[in-house]
Simulated assay, not measured.
Amino acid sequence: MFKRGLDILGAGLGLLLFSPILAFVAWKIRRQMGAPVLFRQTRPGRDGRPFQMVKFRTMRDAVDADGTPLPDSERMTPLGRFLRSSSLDELPELWNVLKGDMSLVGPRPLLMDYLPLYSAEQARRHDVRPGVTGWAQINGRNAISWDEKFALDVWYVDNRSLWLDLKIIWLTIRKVVKREGISAAGEATMSKFTGKGL
């Protein structure tokens, strides 16, 4: 109950304080990439229940001759790279927090396709609401392996507390300023999870 209250307070204040930035980023995306400004995708929430996550769009809708989307690295725009490296693309997720789909802190919501690929231990990351930031994000983000990321997520589930959440939020701010761990080696963001590993 207290964590949910903190989420509502933090997300509400965040949307209010960042409203000029949200408006400016939306204008830049519309001007440089056109509509839509927001990227919406179904992601698994607590207990794997699907919800619509919203982010700022960072990629072009570019396809090859067969109609297959080009790799992320080729669709990513300079504006998109800046939004990713500064984490400004994540700001609309505060709306998901207000709605109760997400928390300020928790394991990041991944793809629905990954649900059947998790081991029983990895699936425990869905015992809590997914977060805008999390323990894995401040310990490597996209620069660590999937096994490391899931181990960190499960550690958070087992050790979560108010003080840990406050620590993660503070360290997230430092990470964003330093722009660390934005992508995996050779990837625009993170390689696809195939289910191999622990």
Score class of each variant (00 low, 15 high):
152 L>C: 06
23 A>K: 04
62 A>Y: 10
71 P>L: 08
195 G>Y: 14
55 K>Y: 04
129 R>C: 03
138 I>S: 02
17 L>K: 12
125 R>S: 08
118 Y>P: 04
96 N>I: 07
172 T>F: 06
149 K>F: 03
196 K>A: 15
146 W>P: 06
187 E>G: 01
114 Y>H: 12
194 T>S: 14
91 L>C: 03
152 L>Q: 11
186 G>T: 08
110 L>C: 12
159 N>E: 07
133 T>K: 07
51 F>D: 01
3 K>M: 05
150 F>S: 03
197 G>K: 10
131 G>L: 01
129 R>T: 05
92 P>Y: 02
147 D>K: 09
31 R>G: 12
74 E>M: 15
61 D>E: 15
188 A>I: 11
123 A>L: 15
106 G>M: 09
4 R>F: 03
167 K>T: 14
92 P>E: 03
139 N>R: 05
111 L>Y: 12
12 G>D: 01
23 A>W: 12
13 L>H: 12
125 R>L: 13
182 I>T: 01
79 L>K: 11
55 K>P: 02
115 L>T: 11
154 V>I: 05
103 S>K: 03
116 P>D: 05
94 L>K: 06
143 A>E: 15
46 R>P: 04
191 S>C: 11
122 Q>L: 08
50 P>F: 10
58 T>R: 02
71 P>W: 09
14 G>I: 14
198 L>Q: 14
166 L>P: 05
167 K>H: 11
62 A>I: 11
188 A>T: 08
198 L>R: 14
6 L>P: 02
34 G>H: 13
166 L>K: 07
34 G>D: 13
165 D>G: 00
14 G>A: 12
116 P>E: 03
79 L>N: 10
158 D>P: 03
32 Q>M: 11
42 T>M: 15
44 P>E: 09
7 D>G: 00
120 A>Y: 13
162 L>M: 13
178 K>D: 14
149 K>L: 08
130 P>E: 15
9 L>T: 13
63 V>I: 08
140 G>I: 00
59 M>Q: 05
69 P>F: 10
58 T>F: 08
78 P>N: 10
40 R>V: 09
174 R>F: 11
8 I>H: 06
86 S>V: 07
56 F>I: 05
119 S>R: 01
102 M>W: 03
70 L>I: 05
111 L>M: 15
87 S>D: 04
7 D>R: 06
76 M>D: 08
178 K>F: 13
56 F>L: 05
173 I>W: 05
93 E>P: 01
115 L>V: 12
107 P>K: 07
90 E>H: 06
35 A>I: 14
53 M>F: 01
100 G>W: 08
158 D>A: 12
154 V>D: 02
96 N>E: 10
118 Y>V: 04
92 P>I: 02
100 G>A: 07
89 D>T: 06
101 D>K: 01
118 Y>H: 01
49 R>P: 04
191 S>H: 14
70 L>Y: 03
123 A>N: 14
134 G>C: 07
38 L>C: 03
139 N>G: 00
174 R>S: 04
188 A>K: 07
3 K>I: 14
17 L>F: 15
151 A>Y: 10
123 A>P: 04
44 P>K: 03
145 S>Q: 12
141 R>M: 03
117 L>Q: 09
133 T>E: 11
89 D>G: 05
32 Q>N: 08
19 S>I: 10
119 S>E: 06
66 D>L: 13
111 L>Q: 13
150 F>Y: 05
170 W>A: 14
37 V>W: 00
